[in-house]
């Protein structure tokens, strides 16, 4: 069964077409890098996956169920980290983590895991959220995501604001989850990160998927050119690559 299966997804905001027939698949135990220029539709796709915006047409499924209709049930199995985490300024990081974990489980959160990830990310959970820097707010979201037992991680530029040390720890966490058979949808702009973590890559531009394929095959095909050059050729309107290159 596919973990994520998006077919011909179209999303219109008024006259503006944000997504124009997006197809995206994620199999179990895979890390899929979701890439594309700013405003291409990455976040819109993710919001459709989360069932917080409704598809104009097409289908969006996770674990074989409709993402909008069964959102609440599906969200028990996923963890989401946004790129810009905004927290409640008069609550502490620890309180926010507990809230998120409790809302997932509906019962007692796993204290051991929570402590483990707080340690790993070197987060001080007793500070009020208003005093956190961007990186620390990001850590709050990451800790609550990893500390809960999810089957699918949806991460929207999760490392923005993190220092390189913390980025490495984040990469370790992803690898561990993958080893446990968990799946990851990772939206990112960081080439090295994608190169390290992703099994597959999918590129969106102006609401359309322009490239998708297995990482190793892409690297093979573009032998001699860096991943960055490959991306730039796909991002660029004029130099857009041939769709059959790697698909």
């Amino acid at each position: 069964m596919k973990v994520i299966e998006i077919k011909e997804l179209v999303k219109k905001f008024g006259r503006f077409t944000a997504l124009d027939g997006v197809n995206l698949n994620l199999d179990g135990g895979e890390v899929l890098a979701f890439m594309g220029p700013n405003g291409a539709g990455k976040t819109t796709t993710i919001r459709a996956l989360l069932g917080i915006i409704r598809a104009t047409s097409g289908s969006v499924e996770m674990f074989g169920e409709d993402a909008w209709a069964n959102a609440v049930k599906l969200h028990r199995r996923i963890s989401f980290v946004p790129g810009d985490v905004n927290l409640w300024s008069n609550l502490t990081g620890g309180e926010v983590i507990d809230l998120f974990m409790a809302m997932r489980k509906g019962g007692k959160p796993d204290r051991k895991r929570r402590e483990e990830y707080i340690q790993r990310f070197e987060l001080d959970p007793s500070k009020k959220c208003r005093t956190y820097s961007k990186g620390n707010r990001q850590k709050v979201a990451l800790v609550s995501a990893f500390a809960s037992d999810a089957d699918l991680f949806i991460l929207d530029e999760p490392t923005s604001g993190l220092d390189p040390l913390m980025e490495n720890i984040f990469h370790d966490c992803i690898r561990e989850q993958k080893k446990d058979g968990k799946s990851v949808l990772l939206s990112s702009h960081i080439m090295s990160e994608v190169e390290k973590l992703a099994d597959k890559i999918i590129i969106i531009r102006e609401g359309k998927i322009v490239e998708s394929g297995v990482m190793s095959e892409i690297l093979e095909k573009f032998n001699g050119r860096t991943l960055e050059e490959f991306f730039l050729s796909k991002y660029n309107k004029n130099g857009g690559g041939d769709k059959n290159d790697a698909g």
């Binding site: 917080i52 969200h75 809302m103």
Partner: peptide, 8 residues
């Protein structure tokens, strides 16, 4: 958005 990404 964060709350809604949870089973809420």
């Amino acid at each position: 958005e964060m709350i809604r990404s949870l089973p809420a």
